Computed example of a mutant assay.
Amino acid sequence: MSEKIVFCKGGGCTAKLGAGVLSHVLEKLPRGLENPDLLVGYDSKDDAAVYRISDDTAVVQTLDFFPPMVDDPYTFGKIAAANALSDIYAMGGDVKTALNIVCFPESSDLNILGEIMRGGSEKVLEAGGILAGGHSINDTDVKYGLSVMGLVHPDRIWSNNGGCPGDRLIFTKKLGVGIVCTANRVGEATEEAMAEAIASMITLNKTASEIGRRYHIHACTDVTGFGFLGHLHEMMDGKLSCRIQAEKVPRIEEALHHAEEFLLTAAGQKNRNHVEKYVKFKNIPFAMEELLFDPQTSGGLLMAVGADEAEDLRNELRAAGLPAEIVGEIVKRTEPEILVVEGDS
């Protein structure tokens, strides 16, 4: 059937505009008057907007949608929804409502659309939210996602740039889903690796976020289209630096093999072009470099927490079934901004 070829031809967060292109556009937009209740806006490069509506309540608002990266419509719906919901969790918030965003060719099998939306709806319910409506467009290509609203206390927002020297960095999912999905499109990924990638992408960051709230999280982001190093660069915010231990970073092992075979994404190359001037690799194999640039779809949370709490947080996350690991630490501003080492080198 032709649906498989048309439906999945490269998507997920690999479809995002490059960070450099996006910054070039956003910096030219008119800002308007400063609003003291807009606690987080697009100029902060954070995961979602936050608007204070009272002393103890702020609205967290985000949206995310993209083309399919897997063949099964139901699975795609779950992945797209989990990815959109993740921005709320990355800000330390709780999901409340969601709206569908749909682009779909009206002449195609509407049962496919139904399966996409069924997968998305199930994830919204799992998040504890309410699917409240949406908007659809007749388009030549399939795209799906959500606009999501959540709530957070104004004093407990997790920004992505609040880290401190000495903080440990904890990552909660495995890297490599972009590379594995690329390999799958050309028939090179094993069923086991693809199943591992899908299981990761459909896992909500809800548990990781809720566990994190029991600790003093100084900064947090979810790792998606700009890759591990791209989002880490945003966390440093020109004020901090960090040291990453490559062997500690959770990864889908088969993704390293595919990276060695150059089954890479164009988005991964965009990430490298944008961030590599801030990064120094020390004794790191090419395949691992690519994994760190690989765009993730519905990736894990990257948290900065004090050294005294890091092991307890990591252990609690792992006890909840997440492949979380302490992957590095933040240091005072130095050059390079991001140093990636292997072992004790």
Rank of each mutant, 00 (worst) to 15 (best):
L317K: 01
T97H: 01
E253Y: 15
S298V: 08
A307S: 12
E316W: 06
I53W: 04
T334W: 11
K123E: 03
T203D: 07
I179G: 01
V6N: 11
Y42N: 12
N100Q: 12
H257T: 15
R52Y: 06
L256D: 04
M149C: 14
G32S: 05
V40W: 01
H274C: 15
L256C: 12
I198L: 04
K248A: 13
M236N: 02
V70K: 00
M288P: 06
K248R: 14
A267M: 10
L292H: 06
D43K: 13
A15V: 08
A267I: 10
A219D: 00
V249G: 02
L291A: 07
A19Y: 08
F171H: 06
N205I: 02
P36W: 09
M69S: 10
D71L: 11
V6H: 12
Q245N: 14
V95G: 01
F171P: 00
K9Y: 13
I330M: 07
A307N: 11
H135Q: 09
L151N: 02
M201F: 03
I112L: 08
A58I: 06
V21P: 07
Q269E: 12
R31Y: 09
Q269M: 15
N315Q: 15
K45Y: 11
K143P: 03
V180N: 00
R251S: 10
P165Q: 06
L110V: 15
E196M: 14
E290F: 09
S44C: 10
L26D: 09
P323D: 04
K332G: 15
N161P: 04
A195E: 13
D167R: 03
L169S: 04
A197Y: 07
F226H: 07
A19G: 12
I170E: 00
K173C: 02
H258D: 10
H257K: 15
R213M: 05
L22N: 11
S54C: 04
E126Q: 10
V102N: 04
E311C: 11
K206Y: 03
E126N: 08
S147Q: 08
L339N: 07
Y51K: 03
V21S: 14
T14L: 09
E253S: 15
Q296F: 05
A219L: 03
E325H: 07
A199W: 10
A208P: 00
D109V: 11
K277Y: 12
T297H: 01
I244A: 05
A81Y: 03
E210M: 08
Y51I: 11
H233D: 13
T224G: 01
D46M: 09
T334Q: 14
E247A: 15
P323W: 05
V95H: 00
I101H: 01
S241G: 10
S209C: 12
I338P: 01
F262A: 13
Q296W: 05
V177H: 05
A307W: 10
A195K: 13
I330V: 12
D312W: 12
G114H: 10
S345L: 15
L175R: 04
V341C: 09
D141H: 14
V124F: 00
N35T: 12
F104C: 01
D87P: 01
S23Y: 12
S23Q: 09
V275F: 04
T97G: 00
S107H: 14
F104E: 00
D94T: 10
A195I: 14
F228V: 09
I284T: 06
P30I: 09
F66C: 06
C13F: 06
K206E: 04
V142Q: 02
L22K: 11
T265W: 01
